[in-house]
Design a protein around this nucleic acid. Structure first.
Lengths: 138, 138, 138, 138
DNA sequence: GTGGTCTAGACCACT
DNA sequence: GTGGTCTAGACCACA
């Protein structure tokens, strides 16, 4: 399920954050769906529960999930009130990596293709095709 | 000139690497142009020379600059022999941030515009041997 | 264990890199085995931890080890996907020293013997999953 | 004639030493032949005369050339009294690089070919085709 | 003058 | 406890 690379320079908790974000963005994890418990996930991945905890906390800070004491962690509904601050940050990163890609010889066409390809995978975004059923929970 | 954020979670030397890479990619720093000396830059930015050194070393490892002991540090010529390994890495990062941007509500059109805008700034790419305006800077 | 010559013209960290490379190549240090911690090795060798760090970092760059923040440093699995660039470099050095050896009167036979001798010590190469004697060391 | 790589990590004077050694070893520069003067070589290569000077001094120390004040520098006759100390050093380097080559996947056969190829280029040396004379050595 | 190495000692981030 | 970053200050090697 999760393929963590312990050899990576990137901290494990960050890898976890990225993976979970991806699952949420691609709507493999749907709004209000429950995430695996800290302990079960820790056991499954054979890593320290504190590491999972840290990843969940980070996701909560970024607004991707919410936690309820005693019950668990759940996927937040997509807010769709454009979060300017975050968008600015992401665009900054994008600019950095797009420049580097172009510098390394990747063509514009290739990059546009990449965007389109990704677009197809991202949960319809704000008009997310037919999830009408995710409105309970707190 | 360089705006470093000493409080950032990103190490100073990495910030420096990114800034300098940017200057090289946009050809504000031209091939074989001399970079500011370790010590002068350290003084200008009021950070430790070792930190600058670390950044320069990293840039050297990544192939962006080369250093000569008694002489200084200089911009490497762009190789333009596509470095597959690096490209794969960059594309991975791009995928991550592009997904996130789309999820945050940035439109595809906007992203394509971003690419085109960046493309205009990145060094002419392959052929710029006869650049007429290589005045020093910094 | 490690014999470092602090007076040598070769930097300490490079001596360390060479020694550790040797231990890895001869498989005295096995894949995924943990290296001594930066601090413990520094204490043992009575040199500065930063120097050890630098050596470890260099080994990481060269692909011989990998480091995980809160855990330690470990031997990378041998990739065995021939790294052309590195091979070219090594062959260049070999040519230099082989010429010199021949010039100094070492016979071809002697050199071939040297190769065979070394070959016997270098980790079996491809297939050594079922090594029976992987006791720790260091 | 000399192709020096100013971008190399290796100091220029060392590159010079290596090149000149090579010319002497391959007997392109014959015994007692005069080397170019420090100043003329400096001019030709457009590098600092001090750098040439340093290279020549090093070659003199290693016994490859000799200098006569007011006259110039000349190739030393090959001594042929096996220089144990040097041979030990060279063998040490060879062991290092041979190990690495084998580790990187270069075959023994390939290495032996390399030796034979080099042997053909090295100035007959001591005539050591089947040198019967190289078996003493401390 | 340049880059490069090393030390001593502090503090942070991750597990 | 692990690796990683940073500083202040010293000394060396190269051109």
């Amino acid at each position: 399920m999760f393929e963590l690379d312990v050899r990576s320079r990137k901290p494990i908790y960050e890898q976890l954050v990225d993976k979970l974000k991806e699952l949420i963005i691609t709507e493999i994890l749907k709004t209000d769906e429950q995430l695996p418990s800290v302990r079960s996930l820790a056991q499954e991945l054979t890593i320290n529960p504190n590491t999972i905890q840290k990843a969940y906390r980070e996701l909560e800070n970024q607004g991707y999930i919410y936690s309820i004491k005693g019950k668990g962690s759940f996927v937040s509904p997509a807010t769709h009130q454009p979060n300017t601050e975050k968008i600015v940050k992401v665009k900054k990163e994008l600019t950095k990596y797009l420049s580097e890609a172009l510098f390394l010889g990747v063509s514009t066409a290739e990059l546009i293709d990449l965007i389109k390809e990704i677009e197809a995978n991202v949960g319809g975004g704000m008009l997310n095709d037919e999830d009408e059923s995710s409105e309970k929970m707190l």
